[in-house]
Design a protein around this nucleic acid. Sequence first.
RNA 1: GGGCCCGUAGCUUAGCCAGGUGGAGCGCUCGGCUGAUAACCGAGAGGUCUUGCGUUCAAAUCGCAACGGGCCCA
Length: 1050
Amino acid sequence: MLKDAGQYNAKSLEENIHKFWDEIDAYSRVREQRIDGQKFFFVDGPPYTTGRIHLGTAWNKIIKDSILRYKSMKGFHVLDRAGWDMHGLPIEVKVEAVLGFKSKKDIEKYGVGNFVAKCKEFALSHRDEMTLQFQNLGVWLNWKDPYMTLRDEYIEAAWWTLKKAHEKNLLEKGRRVVNWCPRCETAIADSEVEYADVSDPSVYIKFPVTGEENTFIVIWTTTPWTIPANIAVAVHPSFEYVRVRVSKNDKEEILIMAKELLKNVLKQGRYKKSEVLETILGEELKIEYNAPLGHKVPRQNTFSHTVYLADFVTAENTGCVHIAPGHGIDDFELGMKHKLPIFCPVGPDGKYTEEAGDYKGMHVREANKVVLDDLSEKDLLLSSGTISHRYGHCWRCKTPIIYLATEQWFLRITDLKEKMLDEIKKVKWYPDWAGSARFADWVKGSRDWCISRQRYWGIPIPVWICDFCGEVEVMGTMEELKNRSAVKNLTDLHRPYVDNIHIKCRKCEKRMSRVPDVFDVWFDSAVASWATLNFPRDDKTYKEWWPADFITEGHDQTRGWFYSQMGASMVSFGKAPYKSVLMHGFTLDTEGKKMSKSLGNVVSPDDVINKYGAESLRLYVLSQNAPWDDLKFVWEEVGTINRMLNILWNVYRFPLPYMILDNFNPVDTRERLATLSLRIEDKWILSKVQSLIKKVETAMSEYNLHKATRPISEFILEDLSRWYIQLIRPRTWREANDPDKLAAYYTLYEVLVTLTKVLAPFAPHISEEMYGNLVRNIHPDAPESVHMCNWQAPDEKFIDIELEKKMDIIREIVEASSNARQKLKRKLRWPVKRIVVVPKNEIVNEAVLCLEKVLKEQTNAKNIILIKHGETWDELGVEVLPNHAALGPAFKKDAGKVIAQLKTVSGRAIKKSILETGSFELEAGVINADMVTFKDLIPPAIAAAGFSAGDVYVDTELTREIESEGYAREVIRRIQDMRKELDLAVEEEIRASVEIKDERVAILVLELKDFIAGEVRARTLTIGPEVEVEGELVKDWDVEDVRMRMGIRL
RNA sequence: GGGCCCGUAGCUUAGCCAGGUGGAGCGCUCGGCUGAUAACCGAGAGGUCUUGCGUUCAAAUCGCAACGGGCCCA
């Protein structure tokens, strides 16, 4: 049996549904149920296990959940292990903060094993916390068996991939300049560098040119601490450079710089006089110079310092660029090209090494000032100021990064670039430009991938090197390592457990040791698509499922996970690891600014759930805008969605009391619908709901979640609540087994049940609740959950597009008539004599004929008069407006007479004649079409309003019958109001008395006494001018200026 | 500085790909309804479609540039 429903309470409803899902193990059973379906392999982009989820993460998972629920209902066998990214520097930094550590030395002292254990504990506890948060959103993924990057089988997937890289000669150890965090003492990836505005030195330095007295080449830098490592100066080959004689304080010297920047340099150096001695192209500039800090850094005197040409030089500052190949990427590349020494006198802790001579032991951050002082002492400092610019910082500990030339391991992704670009084209991107423009551009500009980190909590790099001959061997699996090393009981592949495992060199039979590095954490998630299938341990599953059918992440992942996966997959398998990608946007605040803790504009998903429930949040993020656009979070809009859900709930619960009262038992709904005689509005809503399914399907085929969810909301508000429910209301109040009522019941039932299924992927809670009552309480053998149901295919036999169009017209006419009524202040409760529809096209005609009853009811009109298309309503008066400009010249002095006569003749007669014959004969002369214009004259009791395809006239003239009904309805409304006040049950009977002093009105109302009594369920009803009013509740009313006194008693 | 995306009523947006009188919702004002009722419905006001230039008979729509926002990079 159906059960009644209370008010919509999102929180308790969602809690109950979550409990229900747990009880019946809904998720697992839904997936099992589809085990024979077509495979749909989804890979969850693993969130990083620190802290709580934010709005963007919530949006991400809601998108995934809705799409997967939809796919599952469509019959796909979905594979969707949730994923967790659990290694890496971010967690190390958090744990270091908890333990109060300041550097790697603290970790070493604490013990790597202890530290790693803490990191693991941290990651696991956050995973649990975040899982709960995702589940509160109603997100279904495989939470019981997620893939976790810290698992041994996962680590093996990474190892296997690196071995592949080695076999394909794509793994390389090399010296490169990398982003280096001097606090974390590790290389960090480009993607781990966060840019922020900082104030740095902005200094102009003179390098003394060899063999030319008092001549200097001028460079500019923001990092004076790199001057001790200077090796060269770069100039642009096609810029013009000048030698300038300048003077200041009676001292003369010659400076070299770009011609274009002469003014700037003179200003910086506050030179009073200047004289250009020579202008030459950069490519002709052949000079050597002396190390500016040779006296402090003895090694510098062993290098030769020369000017080189480089395209990356820009016309800024001096046009001459200081080159330290050990401390800059461009610098390094230029150095490699010209075989310059890669001089890097800075250690991993950011302090100068022995090679830096006098600076040894000094931290580079303290060195800036000292270096400037030393240069100043030598009179090599041209000017010194500060500049505010964007500079890179370690994204976790916020320390400014430095560039260091270090030994690192690289994947030679650049070798695979062309093939990767081909693969990108084979992937289906939503939207298209995410792949063709954004991702392709990123890949084109990508560099080799530095995968090594000098840290602890990560996947150990499985490379062993011979201590003697340098032979390199890569371990692909745990098994391989065991076999090669004679270590039998290896239970954890993390550091420090793998650190002391040695193997015997195949070449020289000496000892091999593991390189101490761990992987860049991006490499972890890069192998997710096969690691989640437990490859390489399980080859069979891989063959059945790989590559992924679908992934979806935010646009920040273009350079992140989209890329890292593509790179790793090209290395491993030579093809893309995914077939389709939906790129979604970012959540921003109301102003369109990004949410950040420092701005204090962060909205957490929990806040939204607490206020409106998960369902509102879900539908909000899904429908607010296109998935790929950024989402501006606006609280009011969530409120609007919540209101829509509330209306849905009211629509759902409105018929329940009647259905229950009538013992309505909807079995074989489709068959009953075929045999019952349905009203046209029933057919209409059935058509509408089928059309809705089609719309949702079309939108979902392109992952247009906004275009799928918006029509659902529109259907609920416009078609169901505002229209169909209003139309069938009177039918639900009928007593007994009226077939017309049953037709409405069955129709509404069918529509609501269909709606639960359409809604299920997007609003899984409310649809489950409705389904539970509407379906499960009636059919015990139906699927237990709406999510176990098949997606309902649109049924063409219900669809009648013409009818849908006609109803649209009728709704427009009703709106127009309501508009017209308002002009004459005639309430809808009062019937009107007639409504005249003047159509502008044939469809309006058909619509009115076809839906006359609906139109009549909804406009509360006694009659509908339909004027034929092309004709005018003949009761409209016609005002003839003389056209003086035409009448004057035609009739000259008689014009006045003609105009006067025009007013005495029937306007309609003139219009008719002019329309038919083109002229009209007045006593004073014949007028033609040019001389007059016509205007409709609307009679006083008539109100007019237009709609898109015609006009509507409402005749509000009162008749005795109308007044009688109008007053009667006023009385009914007020007694109903009083019933409500007494909180009476719908079926409870009353005794009522109404005193109306105005005798005329009293008589009018009395005429409909029986009607009134029936409507308000009154056993007895007395009405009259002298009635004694009494009862539990007595009230005085003012009805359209008529005083009434009413009382009701039980 | 570069790549991609976004910029339409007070707010959130549709329309843009395939050029031809800019549609909604929220909010506001006024009104209605009262057997969904701490609900619901209707009407009205409100737009230099960020700006400028160009293509065209015609530009929110196509092109170029600028400005503002986002992501990514330097």
